[in-house]
Design a protein around this nucleic acid. Structure first.
Length: 262
DNA sequence: AATGTCATCAACCGCCTTCTA
DNA sequence: CTAGAAGGCGGTTGATGACAT
């Protein structure tokens, strides 16, 4: 019954990835594309579980990832999206090309949360803290050394001005949205073509540039042949969007990193 | 210089949904 | 139809570095 287990837990390495492991994974993915994570560690010669490989690739090794802190615009977009979607980081990340859910989640917890609190905005409800119980407000005020700006509603207004798609609590009676309800989401967006376009799951989103993504061919349909043939080059998988010089640079930098470590 | 505290972020854990034999 | 594995996701942890005392 069912499928085979993803990996036998015995002999599976944990903890930080080494440059050598990174290199193996990159080489494998660039040669074979993303598919069948269960098979990746074995085929790539890694003593990791497939889950760990997937995470390492999506969160760190993907060539299209942006590095560094989120820009002001990205941050604002995250706030906006969080107000609508709640802690659905993967959905939020999907709207920010080059950013991962993990990265956004971390950034939210370390930077944006504090920023919003300083502004007197509840990072969970996205409403002015004054609306919460006085007790909570007092706690927050005593936490931060800063006093809140004179008008809480002004903060919300400022937010709206910066990003007009942020709805006030009046416009959106159910905020934040129920995390478990995608139908709520569609209800929320159904009357708003722009929002539909931006956030709806069932409509054709304007395709963001995801250069590392494979062409229309579905892995689900074509996964099985991978295990049989490994003679394909990068170009066979539509990955030539990042040129070979970039790949070589990436691999070289990993080499150097590795040398420095040893 | 030594020690303690805080901030950051990569990686893991465990749950949930989807898929398949 | 069902059991169970794969994949995806969000929450949490732990290692590390920066800063304060």
């Amino acid at each position: 019954m069912g499928r085979q287990p993803c990996c036998d837990k015995l002999g599976v390495k944990k903890g930080p990835w080494t440059a050598e492991e990174d290199k193996k994974l990159i080489n494998f993915i660039l040669t074979n594309g993303q598919c069948c994570w269960r098979a990746v560690p074995k085929l790539a010669g890694l003593r990791r579980c497939g889950k760990s490989c997937r995470l390492r690739w999506t969160n760190y090794l993907r060539p299209d990832l942006k590095r560094g802190l989120l820009t002001e615009a990205e941050e604002q977009l995250v706030i906006d999206l969080h107000a609508r979607l709640g802690n659905r980081w993967s959905k939020i990340a999907a709207r920010l090309p080059g950013r991962t859910d993990n990265e956004i989640k971390n950034h939210w917890n370390t930077h944006i949360k504090k920023k919003l609190l300083k502004m007197g905005i509840d990072p969970v409800t996205h409403e002015p803290l004054q609306k919460e119980t006085n007790k909570e407000t007092e706690n927050s005020q005593s936490q931060g050394s800063n006093n809140f700006p004179e008008s809480e509603t002004n903060n919300q207004t400022q937010l709206l001005e910066v990003n007009p798609t942020v709805r006030s609590s009046d416009e959106n009676s159910s905020s934040p949205p129920d995390q478990n309800s995608s139908s709520d989401e569609s209800i929320l967006y159904e009357n708003d073509p722009l929002i539909n376009c931006l956030f709806g799951d069932d409509i054709d989103l304007p395709q963001m540039e995801l250069p590392w993504e494979l062409p229309s061919t579905s892995w689900d349909e074509n996964c099985s042949w991978l295990l049989d043939c490994q003679d394909f080059g990068i170009h066979d998988f539509g990955l030539d969007c990042f040129n070979e010089m970039e790949i070589n640079n990436l691999l070289n930098s990993l080499d150097m990193e590795n040398n420095n470590q040893s």
